[in-house]
Design a protein around this nucleic acid. Structure first.
Lengths: 164, 164
DNA sequence: GGGCATTTAATTGCGCACAACTTAATCGTG
DNA sequence: CACGATTAAGTTGTGCGCAATTAAATGCCC
């Protein structure tokens, strides 16, 4: 039942397979658990979790093109276009072609979208409570996650071992 | 532009909002970055990332009911049923009603599904390389994620502040 | 200025995640 | 044994994530 401590360099393939499963899986599980808590908290606001992320960006920037929104959230137009269409149907955002560059579409908060910020003010507090994390733990976790994301992004593009 | 250091107990709502965004978002981003790397690695095997997770469980347990599979992966039949149907169509698993309990469906590896394990052997190694993480870092991250998941699961169910 | 590559959104198609519901088998209690 | 409650899978519908494609505007270079 107990696993003998093994030096990293001597790990057997089975251990790697297990370790791997646990890391990618625990990340997946945590992400979905987070989503579940957000979902219950956001139900009253009529927002999904990804929609909430978009609103968070807009509450900081007020108006910005879809392109920039996608860069900030790591999402492409295939995801954002229908999502923004739903937010527009809900009356929270307005979309219009940029006058300077007619290819670009500017997303802007409506008054209703701006007001929603007040109603959403409690969400982060409740989330922080739900995690039970201290600021140190949260910071530590974020640092690890950002390091991981950076490494994985790099590997996906310029690591030859992945693209054989 | 620079943020003055503030004691956690005195954080203003805006800071909480930002911190919150960064934590849930970095988790989301890392999870999707992970998925992207797996996707490229698994393309040759004809597996999606969730399908790979199912196969990982099956490679350990050989045969088990859908119910148990769902518990291990935190997925319900709404997700697993069509996924398993696709794995069965690909010839990797076999499904049949349990004789003991006709409500239950047993999922079992086919010979092809068993053989696929050999082909998948390199995946965890490449993933480990892509993360660039030491075993310590990976362990530390997993510990934080599991603690987080546990806290979030608890909050979703028995925390009154979430269900008002 | 004309023609071609690039950029930006939108659309289409597929698979996953989840809620709500349906169906069928089993359990429990009288 | 009967009958209501519970349990396990499957189905349906909605939304997200992403690849691939399309359409339109812009930039560039001769």
């Amino acid at each position: 039942m107990t696993k003998p401590p093994t030096a990293p360099s001597e790990r057997a393939p089975q251990d790697l397979l297990r370790l791997d499963r646990q890391l990618c899986f625990s990340l997946n599980a945590a992400s979905r658990a987070f989503g579940a808590v957000y979902r219950t908290l956001l139900k009253d606001l009529g927002l999904t979790y990804p929609q909430y992320l978009v609103m968070l960006v807009l509450w900081e920037h007020t108006e910005l093109p879809v392109k920039r929104l996608g860069e900030l959230l790591r999402l492409d137009s295939g995801t954002l276009s229908p999502l923004l269409k739903r937010l527009e149907a809900a009356g929270l955002v307005h979309r219009e072609r940029s006058a300077q560059d007619e290819r670009s579409v500017l997303v802007r908060l409506t008054p209703a979208g701006t007001v929603l910020r007040e109603e959403a003010a409690l969400v982060p507090v409740r989330i922080a409570t739900a995690t039970g994390f201290t600021a140190q733990e949260a910071g530590e976790l974020r640092a690890l996650l950002e390091k991981l994301t950076l490494a994985l992004d790099g590997a996906a593009f310029d690591d030859g071992s992945l693209c054989d």
